[in-house]
Amino acid sequence: MSDKATSVKKKDMTKVVGKPDSMNDTHFSYCPGCHHGIINRLIGEAIDELGIQEETIGTAPVGCSVFLYKWFDIDVVQPPHGRVSAVATGIKRARPDKTVFAYQGDGDFASIGTNNSVHAANRGENITVFFINNTLYGMTGGEMAPTTLIGQKTTTTPGGRKAKDFGYPIKMSEMLARLDGPTYITRQAVYDVPRIKSAKEAIVKGFRNQIEGKGYSLIEILSACPINWGLDPVEAVERIKDEVEAVYPLGDIIDRG
């Protein structure tokens, strides 16, 4: 398939993009078109660029990204559901010389683990938190999450989410930004190349804040779940642009670094 390109004489062949060194060859178990894989790779690229593979410890949620320990060639702890920010706190306090990140979905961060998430932020723990928001529970079959949009159909809201019955989409990043503890809170997306580059910069900044001892960084990233949204991967990208971003606008919310 690429025989023709490889046969031409070439010099200075440079790798533009591919698997980061801090990641394993194990295939992702994510569904086709899921944005988790893009975000995982960006974190791997950031770890490579900062040269922190040997001192980074990840904490993984219960959810589709539960197998981070298979995919990253770093140490990963997989705590009980929702306790990721709390366990990351413990690791960081016991080993302040390590770079510790929490990777959490919206079910984990904004529902089951809200208590842990809020207090880690309020304490201004010196950790980096990645909060992946796909507006529902992905792994268990697409149930409503606190982040589900009004009118969005899920397996537990077949008629669409109604505010009267289920409340409103919870805006964790805006909520936590009202606290005095956090240093950096931003919302990003990874549905096209400019957004992916911006998300990568935010991820690197989150790690740098921790390395420089500046405190708590939260990088929320809007993610597509084509399977549970009932859309193909390209349509799912359009849904983020048209619907999800209207409720969860992109950009830095606080930057006190």
């Binding site: 690429s2 390109a5 010099k11 200075d12 062949m13 790798k15 533009v16 993009v17 992702f28 894989g37």
Partner: peptide
Amino acid sequence: FADPDDCVGCGFCGIVCPDMALTVYRFEE
């Protein structure tokens, strides 16, 4: 990789790939 002659090695495909299935190289011909 159906049409190698037109590829300029921008890397967009690999950047949006959710499965690290694409490795993109750029070179001067």
